[in-house]
């Protein structure tokens, strides 16, 4: 649309454009719009449609209004999944954030061999999530897992069982894997931000006698805030929707102790064949994030000069 506006600007909107010139900008954005419509918009609308219908065992039948939603909201398993995701997100993301920022600050100190270090550090994030899942399954799987056998069992930390089989520990093991997987991403994003900061203010602060800690809190942090907010938000949303590593490592178990909304929706669809309720779950999660992001955006815009 913007390009359409620019194309029309010189002559002014009042003057009629030749037909082909009018359609030209739309032609240019058509490929991406068609792709988005087919793979994103239509499935989404269909999901909303399904959530208002009785759709079980692969058959879409009657319109039932908000029944799917009502059932979902009274289901303890749904609330459990929200609780699991909240625990996951509020432990994993702050730790990834802190470790990432600390790592970025260290990288920014002209560490020797940085060019070699960065690709190595980035490896966990570059791996396919399924591979990350399988890798940690092999590392931590009970008495035959590489880490679990050599560390956890040898020092009698956990005996006779896998951490993924413990209702108390499985979620924390998943959090650990998520931190392992995503801290490098945070670190590199923050490092790129640090590299882009202007040097001038640091020189001015050096002349004014600021120490490294004051420079960090009074210069680095305020200048980096917009990036921190955006990356933090993206990671927050992404972590809430976590699926693949959980699917591989615990499948949501033991019981429902690691069942995130994504895992629950998957089970509802492909195990219980209740597509209507699963769709309602998907729509609810989307709505929650839509509202959250909008509120967050407004606050960030006003308070933090972000965006």
């Amino acid at each position: 649309m913007a390009s359409a506006g620019e194309t029309m600007a010189p002559g002014g909107p009042a003057r009629a454009l030749p037909r082909e010139r009018f359609w030209y900008p739309y032609l240019l954005i058509a490929p991406s719009m068609i792709t988005l419509t087919v793979v994103s918009l239509i499935p989404f609308i269909y999901t909303v449609y399904l959530s208002f219908h009785a759709a079980k065992f692969g058959r879409v039948t009657d319109f039932i209004g908000f029944d799917n939603y009502a059932q979902l909201l009274t289901d303890t398993r749904f609330w459990n999944s929200i609780g699991v995701a909240a625990t996951f997100v509020f432990i994993a993301v702050p730790i990834e954030f802190m470790l990432g920022l600390a790592g970025a600050l260290v990288l920014n100190q002209n560490v020797r061999g940085r060019a070699v270090l960065i690709p190595l550090l980035f490896m966990p994030t570059m791996m396919a999530p399924i591979v990350v899942g399988l890798l940690w399954k092999i590392m931590l799987a009970g008495s035959w897992g590489f880490l679990s056998y050599n560390v956890l069992e040898r020092f009698n930390l956990i005996e006779g069982t896998s951490v993924f089989a413990s209702p108390d520990l499985a979620l924390y093991a998943l959090i650990f894997v998520d931190i392992w997987q995503w801290t490098p991403f945070m670190m590199l994003a923050f490092f790129a931000g640090l590299q882009a900061l202007p040097l001038g203010p640091y020189r001015a602060a050096a002349v004014d006698g600021a120490n490294p800690l004051q420079m960090f809190f009074h210069i680095t942090l305020p200048m980096l805030t917009p990036l921190l907010v955006v990356i933090g938000l993206l990671r927050f949303i992404d972590a809430f929707k976590v699926f693949d590593t959980v699917y591989i490592l615990t499948g949501g178990g033991p019981g429902t102790s690691t069942e995130t909304p994504s895992i629950l929706a998957n089970k509802m669809t492909f195990e219980f064949w209740n597509i209507g309720e699963a769709s309602a779950l998907a729509v609810l999660v989307w709505l929650a994030f839509f509202a959250f992001c909008n509120v967050f955006y407004q606050i960030a815009k006003k308070r933090l000069n972000a965006f």
Binding site: G200, R203, A204, A206, V207, H218, I219, P222
Partner: peptide
Amino acid sequence: VPAGRRAVAFLFESYALYPH
């Protein structure tokens, strides 16, 4: 003596203002 202890008032050609 580090820069911060020299009591120098430095006007930078690039301004070096604090952007925030």
